[in-house]
């Protein structure tokens, strides 16, 4: 009797719908998460609609206007113009797409590699675990930006190479997270039950363990998204990754560097965009963690 009462079936009762609503409520409790969500929605809108809603779409595709160089912010040019007479607002908004896509690709690829390696290490244990985790540690010790630069330098610039390069230094975090979660979940009775049925290792991992650890992985993906965007921008800044005229926040910042003291608006606004993205995804990630992984709350 008492065991039943302690377990509290009431907390497990209720449909998925009420759970979802409870999650939404918890999310709304924190106004920072809501701000994060708003920022992310705004960025997604800019990424999807960017090239069509900007005031000067010709500047996005490389058009220049030498008569309008270095105009300060005004009604016509909300963020001013750069050394080529291009509207900085248009470039920043249009740059959202590349930054978000590259950031998302990095996080997704890193999560896939990390989950695969972490799941095998955590489930098999023993020397396989040792070997995989030492390899993971090794990757973790490599400075990520340098590694990314080396890979980009070896494979040449371009978005796919850049994504690959950053992902290579990004997956160890996911591998460690997933390994720990898998080690905890593989002792669950329902996993033993699957083993007693005669289910194979692949089936147990894919059907019984992974579905029960998606929450922390999604939370980490959201938290990492901001940093991934920052890393993409860093590589753009040092000239690896996206090539002009494709607008990208990091490369915009890099081009503006030389004119910073006099024409501050050319650098400040791309910088603000990067800041906003990192900030927004972090707030959203924190909010998601509160909803999906309540044990990890402060």
């Amino acid at each position: 009797m008492s065991a039943l009462a302690e377990r509290g079936p009431a907390s497990k009762l209720g449909s998925r719908w009420t759970n979802w609503r409870r999650g939404l409520y918890r999310f709304r409790q924190s106004w920072l998460s809501v701000i994060g969500l708003a920022i992310v929605v705004l960025l997604l809108f800019a990424a999807v609609a960017g090239p069509w809603i900007v005031p000067y779409p010709e500047h996005v595709t490389g058009g220049i206007n030498t008569g309008m160089r270095f105009r300060p912010p005004s009604w016509a040019f909300p963020f001013g113009t750069n050394e080529l007479g291009q509207d900085v607002f248009s470039l920043v908004v249009a740059g959202t797409r590349v930054s978000l896509l590259a950031g998302l690709a990095v996080v997704v690829v890193a999560a896939l590699i990390g989950t695969a390696i972490g799941a095998i290490a955590g489930y098999r244990g023993g020397w396989i675990d040792d070997a995989l985790m030492r390899f993971t540690d090794l990757m973790l010790t490599l400075p990520s930006l340098i590694l990314a630069m080396a890979i980009a330098a070896a494979l040449g610039p371009g978005i796919p190479n850049m994504v690959f390069a950053i992902s290579m230094s990004w997956w160890p975090g996911f591998a460690r997270l997933v390994r720990g979660e898998v080690m905890a979940k593989k002792e669950e009775v329902y996993v033993q039950a699957a083993r007693a049925i005669g289910a194979g290792t692949t089936r147990i991992i894919v059907r019984h363990i992974l579905p029960n650890i998606v929450s922390p992985v999604i939370v980490k993906m959201s938290l990492d998204m901001g940093f991934a965007i920052l890393t993409v921008a860093s590589l753009g800044f040092v000239g690896i990754g996206v090539k002009p005229p494709t607008p990208e926040w990091g490369s915009l910042l890099s081009l503006a560097r030389g004119y910073l003291p006099d024409y501050w608006w050319t650098a400040i606004f791309p910088g603000c965009a990067i800041f906003l993205a990192v900030f927004g995804f972090n707030l959203l990630g924190d909010g998601l963690r509160d909803v999906m992984d309540p044990r990890a709350r402060r």
Binding site: P9, Y190, Q192, A193, A196
Partner: peptide, 13 residues
């Protein structure tokens, strides 16, 4: 086949 003790833990949520 086996039926486990704890029906809260033995079914995959």
């Amino acid at each position: 086949q086996i039926v486990f003790q704890d029906p809260y833990a033995s079914l995959n949520p």
